[in-house]
Design a protein around this nucleic acid. Sequence first.
DNA 1: GGTTGTCTACCATCTGATAGGTAGACAACG
DNA 2: CGTTGTCTACCTATCAGATGGTAGACAACC
Lengths: 186, 186
Amino acid sequence: MNANAKEAILAAAKRAAQARGYGGLNFRDLAAEVGIKSASIHYHFPTKADLGAAVARRYREDAMAALDALRAEAPDALAALRRYPETFRHALLAGNRMCLASFLAAEHDDLPEPVLREVLAFMEANVAWLARQLAEAGITAEEQAEPRARAVMAAIAGAQLMARSRADVGAYDALIAGYRQAGMLP
Amino acid sequence: MNANAKEAILAAAKRAAQARGYGGLNFRDLAAEVGIKSASIHYHFPTKADLGAAVARRYREDAMAALDALRAEAPDALAALRRYPETFRHALLAGNRMCLASFLAAEHDDLPEPVLREVLAFMEANVAWLARQLAEAGITAEEQAEPRARAVMAAIAGAQLMARSRADVGAYDALIAGYRQAGMLP
DNA sequence: GGTTGTCTACCATCTGATAGGTAGACAACG
DNA sequence: CGTTGTCTACCTATCAGATGGTAGACAACC
């Protein structure tokens, strides 16, 4: 913990925000979890908006790294697409958390502008990744890949929301299966 | 305003919660909007949990009344289904608000138990309505109507979330259109 | 006269944030 | 070598504002 406090703060804040949102983030609890004092968090992140933006940024970076790894491991675009829902399943499983960007999207009206910017960037990055795989897999035509990618992402965000309300990963799995049956997901 | 304060409180709280969630609800702002003092709200709703549960309950009742009216006006189940997305479109249009239940689902970890119960009840009621229309319209077999209804609801919740993050009803419309094209919605 | 609804006046708690201090690492200078 | 100054990363102590909630007075109404 003494090793690199800033990283520890980011990691803890990421977890907390996925469970309680931006409004649920608070310096004292975060400090206690990391093992320092709240004033020290202000040293690394002067304001809550700074912290929120940094967390959202880190979340996006981690997610993109995971998607790139997923694509690298998968034999083709279709296989990568099939495994896309797993990305979010993991958070539900570990503490009934959800996609940070989806949570923050709900909190839209209370977000500092830099935080909101990161949220939108996360979504655009996901849409771009999805659109690439969709086109490459030949599921949609090149020019229809983006709207379809947006639909996929929105549908998955909704599934997380529903599953979280019941604190039940099974609900998420069932919804994903339903999307597949309806031809929404490959 | 003096006419029926309790109703006015509920209405204002419903609007506020659709924009800022349960955590965003606060007695002082609510009182100011209604034109009374915060202590008076405590008279009608002793605790915040009571207020939250009452708001969620009212939201569910209003929504069900709207759905019943929709079904009564529509010539058949298919027509009613086609107009289902409009229910949520309205909130987005009026102040970039979203479905209260979806918002509260995100706040799952911070909800008093009675509030959470109402959220789940709202979802079950919507699923039941959707399943009925889906079966009646012959879109799915009777026994597959419920899982499909859940998928429809989750997809629409996700669309609201995405649209809200961009404060753009057009995004919602585009996503609904995408769902239709993918065969997810009639 | 009791019930109902609202008020004024508080209170305890939590929140983000600031001021000011301190211990240690490190480099520069003489 | 040792003194000096600077920087980093933390600390203690405190603040102002917001929040949910309570007590008790008061007036209107039945």
